[in-house]
Write a protein that binds this DNA or RNA. Structure first.
Lengths: 200, 200, 200, 200
DNA sequence: CATGAATGAGTCTTCATTCAT
DNA sequence: AATGAATGAAGACTCATTCAT
């Protein structure tokens, strides 16, 4: 049966581009590589995307959306005490690390390769960072308003810091040969740090 | 004897390359751009470096050395109580943020653009990360052994986390229009987080 | 299907390369010259050949094949007496000189320009020489075994000498303004020399 | 003692150039290679020669002069019978082969590499060929006029042929691992061919 | 005289993009 | 809609040549 319009084509090209960009980097990957990864003619890529950069934009957006889905899966106002919040942080952490572990090059792809393409892509990434930080901020504000987080917590900056810890951690875990134990150690260390500090 | 080799030439080319790579990114910057930034012929670049990548390696190494100088300026075993350690962290933070603020593109250059060049450069960067983390670990171990940090502190992982916070922060501060107040906020939030946690 | 690959393209590029290499020499001829000789984009050359040297290899191989076709057109065991062999030598000579006269730069191209490219091409040429000499040797051995050539003829070395005479002659004839009379003189002188010697 | 003008310098550069051109070919040899072969600065080459091509011209001329010295060492009118002429041919042959054996790359250098430089060098080489052929012609004419060579010998063309045999032979001998036995075989085969022909 | 640092013209080669089929 | 042959802009790199020292 002749399918006039391949509905999955665009998505399939993005899958292939994701894989190839992750494997070779954006600059080293040619449009022909994306196409041959999929076994299609490289002219076909141009029926679905303006140009190579356009593919990179779509790959980045899709990756950021997936990350956002994890970050926004919980409801910030759902928690009423410290233990519940700790549980929430741990759940998000596990899911995020799973995401990055399932696709070990994801961190490098998003935070290095695609960020290096040009200012436009970098801006997209920074905006996503802000969105994520906004979510984290909502969690923190909820905790402060409900009294189980410090009243004088610098919510805005701390949100950025927490995000940094989480993404940096996810990226590092993804680099590991056997990510599972590292993931557990990382989440434990992070929650201890957040909730208890380092002091004796 | 012929016009004696300018001892500053190599260094000057690295300065120019640092600036141009930071401005346009590694891929978009041509060797001709590096040369014209300095007002020299582009063939001259090849008298001091094997090729364009070799310039990138040298730029990265120099930048990492500068960062290392800040990180390793203090003596890990110098502190005997929590307050002294807090001061040490703050001093390193201030110097690091000053470094990144003096050269706002440094973070992007080192952690994004040059890391995206190829696996070799990325490995160099990761090795530097490990060195930095080793230093941080020494600080933490000192604190644990002297009893002013938690006995059950996961020093290794926490060192990575702390490093992540610091570098992520430095990168973010560097992006700001007016970095000074952001720097102060960031350092305060970081030290509060580290030493007090977020809990009420 | 896309514009189907021109089956003659590769051959046409070799024709153009043959002409341009012969006119300007290998080193002085740019890939752009090959392409513009044919009125195509110079990138197209790289769709059919690895690189410039690869074009030279193909040009040389084709030229050597053409020469081989002339040399191997006759059957070494076909002749039973001196006159028949003399006729055979003359026929090969005529055809060879015609080949070189039809393409006056062929000798220079094959024996000088392409031989100067690098050791690899030179080796190809030397191997072809050996093949040709093997053929000439077969002719001589046939004559010796049938008794119409000297029993003590040094077949191996003489084969090389005869080849040298023939190719050197072809090259010289090709250089002449009006090659026809020179060709006839050369063939006559060669056969006289071979069959009668120079002595009174 | 300070020698203001190095008298041997020019000659030494030609020696170095001869060696380097022979080793790497003209195109692949850089002016810097010539200089470093001699341990001098490459700017110095330009105090003795206009440019790289000028060096090649001088190398070629010197090589051709050396060959000419061998070819012209004997007096064409010296011989009065066939045996004496045969001896003369053998003597020239031995000396020529010695020359090429002492410098195995000489043949390739003169007849291939330098001939491929450009039309000007090729013309120089062709003119030398003619000079050599003129000498051989004088030998042959002497023999004809004294009656020990065929009266109907095509002296002009045969001179070219004989030259071809000799130079081709010298070049082939030079390529051999152990040139001595090949040289002897070649000279024997050549004189037999010249004086007796190949016929039974 | 000698040097070698500097230069930039010249070339090869890659690859994103177009478009005839 | 899909293809892949063709294209040429772009850029890395080499090296002959110059000239200040």
């Amino acid at each position: 049966m002749a399918r006039t319009s391949q509905p999955g084509r665009r998505e399939a090209i993005l899958d292939a581009a994701h894989a190839v960009f992750a494997r070779k980097g954006y600059a080293a990957a040619g449009v022909a590589d994306l196409a041959s990864e999929l076994g299609i003619g490289h002219g076909t890529v141009y029926r679905y995307f303006e140009n190579k950069r356009d593919v990179a934009v779509a790959v980045l957006d899709r990756a950021l959306t997936r990350i956002a889905e994890v970050v926004t899966a919980e409801d910030p106002s759902d928690t009423d005490d410290l233990d519940a919040y700790r549980g929430q942080v741990e759940r998000i952490g596990y899911r995020l690390y799973d995401l990055f572990a399932a696709d070990p090059a994801l961190g490098r792809l998003v935070f290095v390769d695609l960020a290096a393409v040009d200012d436009g892509l970098r801006d997209r990434l920074l905006r996503a960072y802000q969105t994520f930080a906004g979510y984290t901020e909502a969690y923190l504000r909820n905790g402060v308003s409900k009294g189980f987080l410090r009243a004088d917590l610098e919510v805005e900056t701390t949100a950025l810091i927490v995000n940094g810890i989480i993404f940096e951690g996810a990226a590092q875990v993804a680099r590991a040969i056997d990510p599972r134990p590292l993931r557990d150690r990382w989440i434990r260390a992070t929650t201890r740090l957040l909730f208890d500090g380092i002091a004796a």
